[in-house]
Design a protein around this nucleic acid. Structure first.
Length: 702
RNA sequence: GGGCGAGUGGUGGAAUGGUAGACACGAAGGUCUCAAAAACCUUUGAUCGUAAUUGGUCAUGUGGGUUCGACUCCCUCCUCGCCCACCA
């Protein structure tokens, strides 16, 4: 609530009225992110568009700061997340072009033709946004059904048809629009715009493929070079001229489909385009923008696909919006000393199209903090994503009472080192969380830009049939059943071992028993334990230190599957021995403990009881032990095996002493003794010998 | 339509320019047992046959390229998965 009030103070939180996603069952507004395929994410009802007044967060003010740059803003986040977020923010550089509109089919005023028209003139106008102003190819304009200009430009003859179309569009649900596919619909308004570049009259249509939420809610149709515009023009008999010569000289008439602009970006050249003829496409677009700006008919702009975050909910369960509405003073924040505003219990929870908190009169009626007169609380609650956008700051010191979080502690511990989670949070939660952090930075509360240094996304375990687990498909594996049969540790080891952390794949049921067997073998290791036997051979040391190193590194790299594999390898070695020393035993348990916490703890205590010296030492859990260290020197053996190749194909291996590892002639001398190598060199001449110390020796022959 | 990712034995996977298949699962054969289970041992990419204690050849979706050397890097195409989408 304190954060919300700061946002209100800075103009980031504001009350607005727009067309919003509305769930008829839950009787609440939904964010775009919470409409899944046109359905409410909670109840599955079909979402409709409804104009509602509500609270917004001006996340669009942070659009630029939320963009990821090429070096990932100095943090380590998955490329897929950065790409998806940038795409969602949708920064586009383009131009807004204002067209004069003449009502009906009047004769085109001369002033439009000779270019003396200026936007200051008292004429009707419609403004479109485009990234690629192919204006010599523009043959119509489409405005969204919700566009206010329609009231002004629709001619009396077309009034009924247009109004009917608008009405139908407003009743369409997201689902309707999608199930209708891409079939274009629309109605002529009866009016024309003047295409500045050639003085031609082009019809203005209303069509729902223009979306009020994007750009200016109006589009210029360039059907020769845009697929959607082409489909529309074709259906309604509008000309589809081509104005770009393709990279391979294509100039023929368009019959089947538009020539997509993107294929021309590199090589296309303008034609039938007046002053642009012969100019390369990209340059022509810039020249067109210059032209419109110079004439005062257009303005270069940057637009974003991102929209402000609709943040208030007409639900009971949530953080109350800490505002008071006063007839005299308007919206007044609840004074800081009265925070937090607690959620009242005595309310009617049932959705009735208004916020449930409103039903508690006693709670609702307060006096205005400014004038003391009668006022009402804001009855809405905040989207839960508001809370999850900053919880990790609070977790650092949940007892802190002087503000939402302790800036000192936060300075010490934040940003988060690794933030684990699912890909479903890419466009919601993690974007919001980044937004909050950037807001905190502007408030001077933190001095970093990104809340998490590293983001790691887990994969998804699919059902055995390869589909996402779902009750309706009956392919759900219940972990509880597996735990009952094999124990939690075996299930944990299985999940770690069977696939990379971030991989998605089906549950492979067969392998589960193997994990149980692995832990059973670990358990049996206790019978080989000899506390008093402290001597370790070089081989013992090699295996132990290798495992400690590899397992530690793999855990750091979130490669749990290979970490487990290394432990299995070490176990195989330990089993092959007559006895296992205490140091080996303890270290094995410690590095296994994150994966199998229960079995290892049990064995840890067992070895304590066996060790007469340790018996009297107070209980210390295995999970409180330091991670063992390793000695790099013990991992290197006295000799290394070098592969001997002929033309890159393995023919033999040689063993070379460590201290001679860098001496190519030593290696060559050794290799020449190989009969197998000689057999492959026979009758050929050696052109070159490539030696990679300690790895390969390659004879290039011909 | 756009973005991101993946394609390696019967299966899950390992190897990110240097000995492809680590580590497991499964399978086959064996030991033990009256028998089975469990456990343990051996074998396990394909293929050739001159049967090798260390044989040859072919193999990482397809076709090309770079390199002494490519699962790995570059280009073509194919298939699958996930996310976004009448985004002007």
């Amino acid at each position: 609530q304190w954060i919300f009030e700061k946002m209100f103070e800075k103009g980031i939180a504001y009350r607005g009225k727009t067309l919003s996603n509305w769930c008829p069952t839950d009787q609440t507004v939904l964010a775009n992110e919470h409409v899944e395929n046109g359905l409410c994410w909670r109840c599955g009802d079909t979402v409709v568009q409804k104009e509602v007044e509500q609270w917004f967060l001006k996340i669009t003010d942070y659009a630029e700061k939320l963009l990821w740059n090429k070096d990932g803003n100095g943090v380590e986040w998955p490329k897929s997340v950065m790409a998806a977020q940038n795409d969602w923010i949708g920064r586009k550089q383009g131009i807004e072009i204002t067209f004069p509109v003449i009502l009906g089919n009047e004769v085109t005023p001369e002033s439009f033709k000779d270019g003396s028209w200026t936007s200051q003139d008292d004429v009707l106008t419609v403004t479109v946004f485009t990234t690629t102003p192919i204006n010599f190819g523009a043959t119509f304009i489409v405005v969204a059904p919700e566009h206010p200009i329609l009231k002004k430009i629709t001619t009396p003859e077309q009034k009924n048809a247009v109004e009917k179309y608008i009405q139908e569009a407003s009743e369409k649900t997201e689902i309707d629009r999608m199930s209708e596919g891409k079939e274009k619909t629309g109605v002529f308004t009866g009016s024309y715009a003047i295409n500045h570049v050639n003085g031609e009259k082009i019809p203005v249509w209303v069509a729902d493929y223009a979306l009020i939420k994007f750009g200016t809610g109006a589009v210029q149709g360039c059907p020769g070079h845009d697929q959607k515009d082409f489909e529309f023009a074709k259906k309604f008999g509008i000309p589809t001229p081509r104005v770009i010569v393709g990279p391979h000289g294509e100039t023929g008439p368009i019959t089947e489909k538009a020539d997509q602009v993107k294929s021309y970006v590199k090589a296309g050249v303008m034609m039938n385009s007046g002053f642009l003829d012969g100019i390369e496409f990209t340059e022509a677009m810039e020249k067109t923008k210059d032209y419109f700006e110079a004439k005062g008919w257009g303005k270069r702009v940057v637009t974003y696909h991102l929209h402000d975050w609709s943040v208030s909910r007409q639900r009971y369960w949530g953080t109350p919006v800490p505002m008071i509405h006063c007839d005299t003073d308007g919206m007044v924040p609840v004074p800081e000393k009265d925070l937090p505003v607690n959620l009242p219990y005595d309310v009617d929870y049932q959705p009735k199209g208004r916020a449930p908190l409103e039903t508690n009169e006693e709670w609702m009626n307060v006096s205005c903090p400014k004038c003391g007169g009668p006022a009402k609380r804001d009855p809405e609650t905040l989207d839960t994503f508001f809370d999850s956008a900053w919880y990790y700051y609070r977790y650092i010191d949940p007892q802190y009472s002087k503000g939402p979080f302790d800036p000192k502690e936060v300075a010490e511990l934040m940003p988060v080192d690794i933030y684990f989670g699912g890909g479903e949070h890419t466009l919601g939660h993690t974007l919001y969380a980044r937004f909050f952090t950037k807001f905190f930075k502007d408030l001077g509360l933190v001095d970093f830009d990104e809340f998490a240094k590293k983001r790691v996304q887990h994969g998804i375990v699919l059902g055995p049939d390869g589909n996402k687990m779902s009750k309706s498909k009956g392919n759900v594996i219940n972990p509880d059943d597996l735990v009952k049969e094999f124990g939690t540790d075996a299930v944990r080891v299985y999940l770690s071992f069977m696939m990379p952390y971030n991989a998605t794949g089906p549950w492979a049921p067969g392998a589960m028993y193997g994990m149980f067997r692995f832990l059973k073998r670990v358990w049996d290791l206790q019978y080989k334990l000899k506390i008093e036997d402290s001597t370790m051979t070089n081989e013992d040391l090699f295996h132990m230190h290798t495992a400690i190193k590899k397992v530690g590194e793999d855990i750091e790299d979130i490669k749990f599957n290979t970490a487990v594999a290394h432990m299995m390898k070490w176990l195989n070695y330990l089993e092959s021995k007559q006895t296992v020393g205490q140091e080996e035993f303890m270290n094995f348990l410690i590095i296994l403990s994150p994966f199998a916490p229960h079995v290892t703890e049990e064995l840890w205590q067992l070895q304590r009881l066996t060790d007469s010296e340790a018996k009297d030492v107070p209980f210390v859990s295995i999970h409180q032990q330091a991670w063992p260290s390793y000695d790099e020197k013990l991992i290197v053996s006295d000799t290394v095996v070098v592969a001997v190749q002929v033309n890159g194909k393995l023919r033999d291996t040689i063993e070379i002493k460590n201290e001679k590892i860098k001496m190519q002639n030593e290696a060559e001398e050794l290799a020449m003794k190989s009969e197998k190598l000689q057999a492959h060199l026979e009758g050929k001449s050696v052109k070159k010998v490539i030696y990679v110390p300690g790895k390969i020796l390659n004879f290039v022959v011909s």
